[in-house]
Design a binder for these strands. Sequence first.
DNA 1: CCTTCTCTCCAAAGCGCTTTGGGTTGCCCG
DNA 2: CGGGCAACCCAAAGCGCTTTGGAGAGAAGG
Lengths: 345, 345
Amino acid sequence: MNLKQLSESLGLSQTTVSRALNGYPEVREETRLRVLAAAEAASYTPNAKARRLATGRAMAIGHVMPLTGKEELVNPIFADFIAGAGEVYAREGYDLLLSMVPAEGTEAAYRQMAANASVDAVMVQAPTMDDPRVPLLQELGLPFLVHGRTGAPEGYSWLDVANIRAFRRATELLLDLGHRRIALINGQESLDFARRRRMGFEQAMGARDIAPNPLWMRSDVMTEQYGYRAACEMLDAHDRPTAFLASSIIPAIGIRRAAGERGLRIGKDVSIICHDDSLSYMGNEGTLAPDGPAFTATRSSIRAAGQRCAEILLSLIDDPTQPPIQELWETDLSLGRSTGPAPVG
Amino acid sequence: MNLKQLSESLGLSQTTVSRALNGYPEVREETRLRVLAAAEAASYTPNAKARRLATGRAMAIGHVMPLTGKEELVNPIFADFIAGAGEVYAREGYDLLLSMVPAEGTEAAYRQMAANASVDAVMVQAPTMDDPRVPLLQELGLPFLVHGRTGAPEGYSWLDVANIRAFRRATELLLDLGHRRIALINGQESLDFARRRRMGFEQAMGARDIAPNPLWMRSDVMTEQYGYRAACEMLDAHDRPTAFLASSIIPAIGIRRAAGERGLRIGKDVSIICHDDSLSYMGNEGTLAPDGPAFTATRSSIRAAGQRCAEILLSLIDDPTQPPIQELWETDLSLGRSTGPAPVG
DNA sequence: CCTTCTCTCCAAAGCGCTTTGGGTTGCCCG
DNA sequence: CGGGCAACCCAAAGCGCTTTGGAGAGAAGG
């Protein structure tokens, strides 16, 4: 069933039927109801492909997912972020177009999307300090929203968490617990959030006149093995940290593994604080009596961020001329069982 | 730049230019080269929306991602699976349309996709025993591929791993190590793979005349907390298992946490075998001298499965009349450090 | 009674591509 | 030399929708 058939069956023109269905005012209310009823009865759905061509709108949002590193790792936080964004898109009638490309092909992917207008806007994730995507998308005139910030966070829309404050506060907590030997297991420093978190760490340490040990500051792709290996090396050295600050729950799990293998008790011999994106399957919320959250963590739901990012992006499409929208989210510092007073000696 | 302009600039008809670009034989080679050069020079890209309308092909594959459970969990294995599939789609010029819907909305989502032909085929993930999506998609005439199988795996295409054999073999390994008190931390039994894995476990136990302890057989959404809580309960009982078989590395991490908190050494006091989907950030491959894989595991790369599933699905689109394609993948049983002889006493 | 709006509704022109159904040309062959 | 056949190329008809530019019918106004 298409518009033509539907309009013929109603004895109306395609114009009128189209307008009735799309809520235009040039059609009598009585007629509109008749059209809606007929459409419902015939279970008519406008052909999306035709509509896209006619309107020029793609009714789709592009997410370009770069496969990083030579092993082309897939960041698990994308799943939750996309889930959040996807809900909003679905609700608003937008499709989510996912494009998996090797890191070096991202520019081409965006150019392609802009050239044939296959999306109305794009979401930019995991921005680097000096991310080339920002100027590129501005040049292409494609509306976009950055989840995170670049080094120069002006002139474009973004949503980010207050990384500096989050890690400063986490560090202060460790310091208050008496820890002085604190390791930072960070993400890749090319990513803006990692740099900010390091700054937060350094600020808190500096405020107490403690010089961070450079051997205890690592930065890499945040896998479980990375956390594990880094912790192994540090814990096996004669001079070892009493606390770890990790940029994600994933490497934190690796740190826990390393500690566990060495018979070190978490929250007693070794403390861990991590940033927790509230990943579905890694649930660190546990409020059940005995088992509270496993990790003390700076928390911010990546899923909620995805939802809000989608909302902002859609509003950007509706009015591309509006001034940039920028949102900074505070994190929660939630106490779990992975922190305790620094061991004496 | 569109086809009309390009053809005018070349002094050719749209027909000829279109054919030249699309590799049809009715155009002289010399002309074709001229057209290709001009298109290249003008950086002409055919408008995807127009092409879709004209051809009727969506050049897109649908992935419907149900948000399960009341907390709408996002399964992290989807990220790696989609990454694998996405690579293939990109290579073949297909878009990946991701649709996030609450579990009860999946049927509507598929009907919608079929009705307005917004995708050429769909991928079905995590099938249940008696999955309604199979008959639905057959009714809708939408090509599809199931990753996994339903209870009645006939008459449609699928790709699955040999779950029964995988878990039978894993169980045999534990039995050979002297374990008799083995717990099964399985996925939801409504999912077909979980049932098969249980069967594998039971077969191996039965073959040695050992009756599994029903208290040690759990089945639920495979979160870290689920593994943790199940292990806590079992390990705190006076009668406790010496080995765990887990359906995913995620709950296995929870089991490890529970054991670690109780001072139990993994691979000594407690053995763990899990199924490992080779999730990027959970890398369990580690072949470096001291640290081998953390977990002994039945392994099968979910990413590779995604790639292969995409290839099969695309071939199904090319020829929808071909007989069903069914592929059963064997898993590797890779020894890690989480297994050891059953403790005596 | 005629003009001017306001309501409703319609015919037709796109959107940019693919594809059908021919037309020319030029060459080969009897 | 005329008919037949490739080889090339083209005009035009869609694909199914939106949207522009009216048109007809009453109602309101003078």
